[in-house]
Nucleic acid binder design. Sequence first.
DNA 1: AGGATATAGTTTGACGACAAACTAACTTGC
DNA 2: GCAAGTTAGTTTGTCGTCAAACTATATCCT
Lengths: 163, 163
Amino acid sequence: MATSGSGRVRRGKKGETIAESIRFGPLEYWVGFNLRMAQEHAFQAFSRRSQEIGESPGRFATLTIIARNPGISQTELSHANGRDKSSLTPVVEDLVRRGLVERKRMREDRRTYRLNVTAAGKKTLTMLTRCARRHERVLDAIIGARDRKRFLQILKKIAAEIE
Amino acid sequence: MATSGSGRVRRGKKGETIAESIRFGPLEYWVGFNLRMAQEHAFQAFSRRSQEIGESPGRFATLTIIARNPGISQTELSHANGRDKSSLTPVVEDLVRRGLVERKRMREDRRTYRLNVTAAGKKTLTMLTRCARRHERVLDAIIGARDRKRFLQILKKIAAEIE
DNA sequence: AGGATATAGTTTGACGACAAACTAACTTGC
DNA sequence: GCAAGTTAGTTTGTCGTCAAACTATATCCT
């Protein structure tokens, strides 16, 4: 090994290594930063998990919302999912191409699509859901049963009320 | 207006519109999904805010960590910041180009850079910090003083313990 | 009826993220 | 002292995201 590896290191007078840890300053106790860190770590974990069954993690919420709201349009879906409608185009295209989702033009308004999950899509969704449940159990264990409900409420509140 | 706008809509027998709301199924009470939603909304809000002073939101954490840890290397910084070292290359390049950060090769190990914030960088950081504090106050108001500490602890716990 | 306006979805361009492959510098072990 | 392995940082390729411009439909108002 070239150096002692992870962690900050400083050299003393005689060349000995002195471990130093990172100072985060105000980031330490700011919600924004810690929210980002928590989300990204959790997302990475779920990402690895869903790769095991050969699916991209983002597909899960999309597929669930379509399944629970048959005939939903892409714009409604993008709002529900909290992303821009333009982000959805390639995702839906992929799901349709792989036969998991079916899309039909509406009769009354031919600009709009209706999205539905196919039988194959339901099968995939079942697997993804099992995968997500395992992920949730891990998160639950970290959060603890006592605080879970309140924690969830706060997350919802942030998403709903900010700006 | 072409239709009634946002919200789900279904047509009745006589063509009248019937509002329907989105069903989220299990997403409703899953931490992963709500964590993502909260983080993305909060990030968007901070993004708008930092655009007002002409900075990208990602620069803030980076600049703070460099300022608090003078001489830090890029790899240490990427760990502290929770991102891949390769993501950091263009960010540091940009900060150096704009004269906010200075980087020097280490004598003892010429692979490594030492990063430091310049005087101009400190000025920018001061503005960014003010901006972040306003953002934090909004978040604090949403979370509530009573739950804030516990909420933060849980976020840290998730980032630290998952996987 | 038809022009102004609004909406659904796509395209394009910029960015930030990761992972894997790469270069250059360092260390280890023989 | 040198080959083999390791580490710091960059490059490249892919992906997901947003925002703005675009198309095609649909509606509203006169």
